[in-house]
Design a protein around this nucleic acid. Structure first.
Lengths: 345, 345
DNA sequence: TTGTACGCGTTATCAG
DNA sequence: CTGATAACGCGTACAA
């Protein structure tokens, strides 16, 4: 073999080498090449090695279009998200892509911030014959009907959002467990009272969490007040405003604040700081989503971390199980304890 | 026509209707159907209308696998990014996906945080025969050789990162213009001295910007000190630490701080706040990237906004031009002026 | 076990 | 401008 020309010939043939070339070089039929490379021929004899060597030498890779046409498997999964500018979506993206790719599959991405756009993206991806579909519904988007419509054709997993029918699969964070862990943690720290800055009022999930908050507060014999616990958006500004109102009164104040999002928690911490209150000595603060920013606040923020790895692996497992085995899976998150709650009463 | 059964028959045939069915229903040949639906036949006579009606009735959509197999156009473009957890990447994603999709194209996403992974993703996508490739190199990744290797086969656009050869296309933010705009803005505000918190020292771009900073400072007759201007990472913590050191000394202090990232600026603002210095009354602060967080800081942060829309449209234009017309395009950003610099001296 | 031959759904080619 | 037909590259039933 002429070592110095290996690279040159490889790069020269990289574009136009098909299974036929490999078969010719390995001195076998294309059927054998197909079987060896797709793993349908387990033996590892001389033939198999010759085929693999030829494929490597020609820098051969299967033509997915031809493969998909013949076998109706595209080695492609579709992912629909509302936006990349959201810590949950972004972390899920970073977690899911590498896992997809090891399977020599690829990720077809659709972004849609509202119901109409998401439905459009779903239809686009179904038209592409993706092998499976993972959907993170946008806030307030009801995709159940749409998803159910394709559920018989295609394995579909909804991640988070409103609970859907049992004809489609679903993976979600166990928010009740989250609340239990958070309140339990605060109770362990010895605090006596706690406030809650919830998510959007319109959301069913927010309401449910709100209820769970009160259940857990009672269970741990903590105190809370109606005017401490408000619905609102998930912004820094909202956390700031709420905390300013809450802590500038000379009346009774909570010893801890639980937030439905890290951004809110962040605003709360800034407000506390400008009021001269210390975190965690005077007030403990807990966030949600464990966004990258939680690690870099002053002090670092204790936050609920959604089980991204598990969400991804369960979602992919459900996709592999096919469209006929739908299931609803709820996964408990983890509390990442940092400085913002590191203070024993 | 039986209106009530339209939906039922459409959904029933949605899965298994090919060009042959459409041709039969429209009473033309499959070739004509192909031409009408792909727009290669401009006339809008009775035949065209019959074809479209038949396609709509059967809920037909082209099989991209078959189309790709025959025509070597996959209607797919590949995008490689280092991570979704970065404001620049996330905003570019949100900007690019809708523009791709209107062209009935799709986005194949690859994520790789280092050089090796990114190369792997690029090869994966090339293996998928994407029609074009957009690459955002990871920090410190040198992909020029890899990209150049495929540049003859495939239109490739590099976005940002180290300058590449003229055999591949490139779209980047004009950082010099950015610095000019920023320093010009501060000079207009009447400040006399300014500090700069640069990006990573290893980066060529950082060094270049560092030089540009000094050029602009001189041009506007402002003052700066060597110990004010440091390289460092793009984190909140870094901004906080640097600002604490800088502003806790009773010596001469800058009236403005320019940061290479919003996160740094954020840390600076927190530090100033805890030192009792007001923004913008005592110190003006400018960030970079106009991440969503810039809108929600207290006060809202003046920040350099990369021209995402233009980056996307230029990148797609270069992809459309094919692999034989590479170009390097540099786009001036925009300064989004907010409260953090809203103070005349 | 291996090879031959067919067909997947589409677009390109060419003759009418 | 239209229609018939070949060809794209691969997987697999069937024959050897």
């Amino acid at each position: 073999m002429a070592r110095t020309t290996d690279n040159a010939s490889a790069s020269a043939t990289s574009a136009n080498s098909s299974i036929t070339n490999v078969a010719a070089l390995a001195n076998v039929s294309i059927a054998t090449v197909s079987r060896v490379l797709s793993g349908k021929r387990t033996k590892d004899d001389d033939i198999a090695r010759r085929v693999r060597a030829a494929a490597a030498h020609l820098n051969y890779s299967v033509n997915y279009a031809a493969s998909a046409l013949r076998s109706t498997v595209t080695n492609t999964i579709g992912l629909v998200i509302p936006t990349a500018n959201d810590p949950f979506c972004a972390q899920l993206l970073d977690e899911i892509e590498p896992v997809i790719d090891v399977d020599s599959q690829q990720l077809l991405l659709g972004i849609g911030g509202d119901q109409a756009t998401q439905i459009q993206r779903i239809e686009s991806l179904v038209g592409r014959h993706v092998d499976g579909l993972i959907v993170l519904p946008a806030w307030g988007a009801y995709l159940s009907a749409e998803l159910e419509h394709y559920a018989s054709t295609l394995p579909i997993v909804q991640v988070g959002g409103r609970r859907c029918s049992f004809r489609t699969s679903m993976v979600s964070v166990d928010e009740n467990a989250a609340m239990e862990i958070v309140i339990g943690h605060l109770a362990e720290r010895g605090i006596a009272s706690v406030a809650y800055m919830a998510g959007k009022e319109i959301s069913f999930e927010s309401a449910e969490l709100f209820t769970m908050f009160h259940t857990q507060v009672r269970a741990h014999h903590l105190n809370t007040e109606a005017e401490w616990n408000k619905f609102g958006d998930r912004s820094v500004q909202r956390g700031f405003d709420c905390a300013m109102r809450l802590f500038s009164e000379p009346l009774v104040q909570p010893e801890a604040v639980v937030c439905a999002d890290d951004a809110i928690a962040f605003g709360v911490m800034v407000a506390l700081h400008s009021l001269g209150l210390r975190v965690p000595e005077d007030v403990l603060v807990v966030g949600y989503n464990d966004s990258p920013i939680a690690r870099t606040t002053m002090p670092p923020l204790t936050s609920v971390r959604p089980p991204f790895k598990q969400i991804v692996s369960e979602a992919l497992r459900l996709l592999n199980d096919g469209p006929d085995n739908p299931a609803h899976i709820s996964l408990a998150p983890q509390l990442i304890v940092r400085e913002s709650t590191n203070c024993q009463r």
